[in-house]
Simulated scan of single mutants.
Amino acid sequence: MDNMAGQKSGLVIATNLSVIFMVVLWLIPTVGLLVSSFRDRDQISASGWWQAPFSVELAFRTRADDGEPQLIDGRYVIEGNIFETEEVQEAFAEGEGTITAFGTRGAEPGQFPAGTEGETRDGDLVTINPDGTYIYSTAEEPGRRAPRIYFQADTPAEFTLFNYRTILGSAGMDRAFINTLTVTIPATIIPILIAAFAAYALAWMQFPGRGILIAAVVGLLVVPLQLALVPLLKLHNEIGIGQSFLGIWLAHTGFGLPLAIYLLRNYMVGLPRDIIESAKVDGATDFQIFTKIILPLSFPALASFAIFQFLWTWNDLLVAKVFLPSNSESWVMTVKIADDLLGSRGGDWGILAAAAFISIAVPLIVFFAMQKYLVRGLLAGSVK
Rank of each mutant, 00 (worst) to 15 (best):
G172Q: 11
Y200T: 10
Q152L: 11
L342T: 14
I13C: 07
L297S: 02
I178E: 13
R145E: 15
I294K: 06
P300Y: 05
T127A: 13
M4D: 15
H236W: 04
H236K: 01
A338S: 15
S36V: 01
W204T: 10
G110D: 15
W312V: 01
T180W: 02
Y76F: 14
V269H: 12
L246Y: 12
P258S: 03
R265S: 02
I294F: 03
T291E: 06
V332R: 00
S330T: 11
H236M: 09
A14E: 06
F305Y: 08
P363N: 10
L11R: 15
R210F: 12
F287E: 08
V31C: 13
S55D: 09
M22Y: 03
A355K: 07
D73H: 07
D65E: 12
L374P: 02
I20M: 08
V383E: 09
D274E: 10
T155D: 00
N327Q: 12
Y200S: 04
G103A: 14
A279K: 06
S326M: 07
K372C: 05
G103W: 03
I214Y: 05
T160S: 12
E141C: 00
E329M: 02
G80R: 06
V269R: 13
T160H: 09
F308D: 10
G172N: 09
A203D: 07
S344A: 08
L342V: 11
E141W: 07
V223S: 01
A361T: 13
T98F: 10
M4Q: 14
A251R: 08
S344T: 15
T285G: 14
K384W: 00
E96S: 07
A361E: 13
D131G: 14
T138W: 06
P109R: 05
A301S: 10
N327I: 06
S45H: 14
P186K: 00
D316Q: 13
A5C: 03
S326N: 06
D154Y: 12
L364P: 14
D339A: 10
L271F: 01
L225F: 13
L181Y: 08
D42E: 15
Q51K: 12
G270L: 00
M333S: 04
T313K: 03
F305A: 00
P53A: 01
L181K: 04
F54T: 13
L341W: 09
T160W: 02
D40C: 12
V23E: 04
E86R: 11
V366I: 13
L235S: 07
D316G: 05
E84D: 15
Q152M: 15
E57M: 11
A64E: 10
M333F: 05
A380V: 00
G350W: 05
